[in-house]
């Protein structure tokens, strides 16, 4: 079973803020991590390899320093890592990004047939959840998003039975592969790095592919290939500051009484 996992290096978003004085993004010292959902996609691919044999290839698109994301998954024991990096990729939105990654998967597939493409459900910086469906559509592969269980694989019939999480339950599906899935954190526990793999990862060099390596056309990537553009960023609107009700510490009964008075007065309750 040959799995290709698409991962993204993201800033640890819990630490990104807009400076209220200058209205700019405060980025200093914000660490980069592998998108947490993608780690579970890597784990899912490794588990399938453990059980059914085969190979795990991990790709990421980004600037040269995104190689650190590949180093991280190398410590988990993935077989092959490829960095897609080119100035021409800069400014790509989700449609253009799905094009670039699709070109790369096609090239990997031509060398070594791909059975499964895995992505995290979404990246924590953009939260779009669009690149996975985009790649599946371009590759004409069946798509299942929000996968929470992989029940079984039938390597004879080439089908995977899995469950997808929806608002009020789960749907069980049987899907022919090659297929693409995007996964939830609840799917698995990510393994720890082993010492031999950590040593391998310190000395590793990822393959780097540029636009010519994957035969990508300029008109489909970067700003030219991106229908959407961010035109404004701002801090989330703040609600009008409300009313503080005093004496909560020394006389909670009085504070509560006053609160209920106000709620009744406004006919809220």
């Amino acid at each position: 079973m040959h799995s290709v996992v698409c991962i993204k290096q993201v800033p640890d978003t819990t630490e990104v803020r807009i400076d209220p004085k200058t209205n700019t993004l405060m980025r200093e010292g914000v660490p980069s991590i592998v998108n947490p959902f993608d780690m579970h996609a890597v784990e899912a691919a490794l588990k399938l390899r453990d059980e059914y044999g085969g190979k795990v290839t991990v790709i990421t698109m980004g600037p040269p320093q995104a190689v650190e994301a590949l180093r991280r998954v190398k410590t988990l024991g993935v077989d092959r890592t490829i960095l897609l990096s080119d100035r021409a990729f800069a400014g790509s939105d989700t449609l253009a990004t799905s094009y670039i990654i699709t070109q790369a998967v096609k090239k990997i597939d031509s060398e070594d047939a791909v059975d499964l493409v895995l992505c995290g459900k979404q990246a924590i910086d953009g939260d779009t959840a669009q690149v996975g469906p985009g790649i599946a559509t371009r590759l004409n592969m069946p798509l299942v998003t929000y996968v929470i269980d992989i029940d079984s694989v039938d390597t004879e019939k080439k089908t995977i039975t899995l469950k997808r999480s929806v608002e009020n339950g789960r749907t069980a599906l049987c899907v022919e592969y090659p297929m693409l899935m995007t996964v939830l954190k609840e799917l698995n526990e990510v393994r720890y790095a082993s010492l031999p793999n950590m040593i391998l990862a310190t000395n590793f060099k990822a393959e780097v592919w540029n636009k010519d390596d994957i035969g990508a056309e300029m008109k489909n990537m970067g700003l030219d290939g991106s229908p959407t553009a961010v035109r404004k960023i701002f801090s989330p609107p703040v609600r009008e500051c409300g009313e503080m009700i005093p004496h909560g510490i020394e006389q909670p009964d009085v504070a509560v009484h006053n609160l209920i008075e106000k709620l009744s007065h406004n006919k809220t309750i």
């Binding site: 978003t13 229908p227 959407t228 553009a229 961010v230 404004k232 960023i233 701002f234 801090s235 989330p236």
Partner: peptide, 12 residues
């Protein structure tokens, strides 16, 4: 975006 820390207006 960024986990709700910023808002972005996007055009197509």
């Amino acid at each position: 975006a960024f986990g709700g820390n910023i808002m972005a207006t996007i055009l197509c």
